[in-house]
Simulated assay, not measured.
Amino acid sequence: MSVVPVSKKQHPHDDAPDTAAAFARLAGLSDGPERQALRDELIESWLPMAQRIASRFRGRGENVEDLNQVAALGLVKAVDRYDPALGNAFESYAVPTVTGEIKRHFRDHMWVLHVPRRVQDLRNRVRAALKNLAQTIPGQRPTVTEIAECAHLSENEVRTGLEALDCFTALSLDAELPGSENGYDLADTLGEPDAGFDLVIDREAVKPALRTLPERDRTILYLRFFGGMTQLGIARQLGISQMHVSRLISGCCATLREEIASDAASATSGEGPARPARRGSDAA
């Protein structure tokens, strides 16, 4: 089975073969080995063009092999969807198809933080403006105003685009910070859960209930939980038995739990806190 040869012709790009006759033949073939062979030959003939387009996107965080693979995928789509009956040259259809496939790859797979399409477009325009300004004012970082004038954007849009530049890549948590000593890395700057916040919440929740206790009960609780005294030490200071101190502590804690639970239930139902009558301490 013979396949129509793909000829070459003079063209601004050396990687643009003359495949008009081959595409016309491909359109007239039904599915089968002959059509598959001609399709494969067309794809192979245009691969240099796809690789040339892929080379434009070097230095953006993706390796060359993956870029070429994505460009080849776009080329396959272009070959399968191209209709020579429309009268347009294949290259005019293939170039935007391959370019769009590469851009889609960057948009969908290369962003560490996914941002809206509008912000991605702003990032690309700001990036292009920075590249142009680097040639006109070498050695000097352009200002936001200069970038806005070059990219025909507002200054707020430029700031958004500049922030998006940092969303394309991310540092590892193990990355050592510039100027740090003794291996100080990014992970060392991250905070950890602080149990002290829960303690503050608990203290604020129990304050109103503590005010309802008699003075001696409050003193016992303070000496035990804030003064760090033992029950025996509290008993000696107040002139009562250790067993009595233990009963008072247990009773106070039970009272506080009941009042806090009652306040929580009242807050959930939308009612105000209902305080029980002040309870006196046990007789000495």
Rank of each mutant, 00 (worst) to 15 (best):
V4L: 06
H11N: 14
P17T: 08
F23R: 01
G28P: 03
L29Q: 10
L38D: 04
R39V: 02
L42A: 08
R52H: 14
I53L: 12
F57R: 05
G61Q: 03
G61L: 06
D66F: 00
L67R: 00
L67N: 00
N68H: 06
Q69G: 08
D83I: 11
P84L: 08
A89K: 05
S92N: 07
V95M: 08
E101R: 07
R104C: 03
R107N: 07
D121Y: 02
L130Q: 15
K131F: 06
A134I: 08
P138L: 04
R141K: 14
P142Q: 08
E149P: 13
E155R: 09
R159T: 13
G161P: 00
T169S: 13
S172M: 15
S172E: 15
G183I: 07
A187H: 07
A187F: 03
L190P: 01
D194R: 07
D202R: 13
A209Q: 01
E215G: 05
E215F: 11
D217R: 08
R218N: 08
T219D: 11
R224E: 05
F225K: 05
G227R: 15
I234Y: 03
A235L: 15
R236K: 14
R236L: 09
G239A: 06
H244W: 10
V245Q: 00
S246F: 04
R247T: 05
S250W: 06
G251E: 12
C253V: 09
L256K: 02
I260K: 01
T268Y: 14
S269Y: 11
G270N: 04
G272Q: 09
S281K: 13
A283G: 14
